[in-house]
Simulated assay, not measured.
Amino acid sequence: MTQHSAPCPVPEEQQPLNEYQELQRSWFFRWALSPFPQLWKPLLWLWLASWLVAGPVAAASFMPSRHWGKFLLTSATGAWLPVGLILLQLYLGWRYVCDRLARPVVCYEESGWFDGQLWQKPPDILSRDRLIVAYEIRPLLHRLEQLFALGGVWILGGVLSWPFLP
């Protein structure tokens, strides 16, 4: 960070830039930084692993030999639930940091929950933070939103096709 006449009173771990860098270093949140092919890989593995639970649960409701279409759709949708939760956690973590970087005022705690303070960002820090939001975080959030939309299309397609499945 650049030096200012008034030092930043926000504790290091609560400064939005440091929170952003912490997410970049995080094993879990770093997934969202990956381009689509690399982002799909762990999500696909999680989806496949989730079939170990979703398959037997769906088979208890729809016997695969008699209702194979409903079994497959129910299993696939049930296996998508953990993937959706992972995507939601990624989205919420990055969205929180995005909001903290984009705001001109930083809320922080000096020593506990009872002493909230506000700090007005100087123009150069606000500009830097908003550039990070525009060029780094918003594209990442857009990718995650696209994956949510894909899951929504899957579920909508399943609902619309349900009456026609064997």
Rank of each mutant, 00 (worst) to 15 (best):
W119T: 05
L85P: 01
L90G: 03
K41C: 04
F148P: 01
W113C: 04
P139A: 10
E145N: 11
L90F: 13
P37K: 00
K41E: 04
D129S: 13
A76R: 05
L73E: 12
L52A: 13
K70N: 03
L101V: 06
S111I: 00
G116F: 14
L156C: 10
F28V: 11
L73S: 07
L44T: 11
P82C: 08
T74G: 07
L144F: 13
W51A: 12
A79W: 01
W119S: 02
T77A: 11
S65E: 12
L140F: 10
F29E: 02
P64M: 04
L126E: 12
S50P: 09
W119Y: 15
E19K: 10
L43T: 06
L17C: 06
P64F: 00
V57I: 15
S127Q: 14
K70F: 11
I132V: 15
E110H: 03
L44Y: 15
A102Y: 01
L140P: 03
V97K: 01
W113N: 04
P139R: 08
Y91D: 10
Q21P: 00
L150S: 13
L44A: 14
L23Y: 11
S61F: 11
S26W: 00
G55Y: 07
G93I: 12
F29Q: 07
Y135N: 12
R100F: 05
G78S: 01
P123H: 07
Y20W: 08
A58W: 11
P64Q: 03
R130S: 01
R103N: 12
A60D: 03
L88H: 15
L48I: 10
P9M: 09
L39F: 03
L81A: 13
I155D: 00
N18G: 00
R30I: 10
W45R: 15
L144I: 09
A58L: 01
L48Q: 08
L126D: 10
W31L: 15
W94S: 09
R143L: 02
A79R: 04
L141N: 11
L101N: 04
R100Y: 00
W94I: 09
L160A: 13
P37M: 05
V105T: 14
G157K: 06
F62M: 01
E12H: 13
G157R: 13
A49M: 13
I125S: 02
M1V: 06
E12F: 07
E145W: 13
W27M: 03
L72F: 09
G152V: 02
E13D: 06
W31I: 09
L92N: 14
Y20L: 09
S111P: 00
L44Q: 11
T2D: 03
P139D: 02
H67T: 06
P82R: 10
G116M: 03
L44S: 15
L150Y: 05
H4R: 14
G78F: 05
L43P: 12
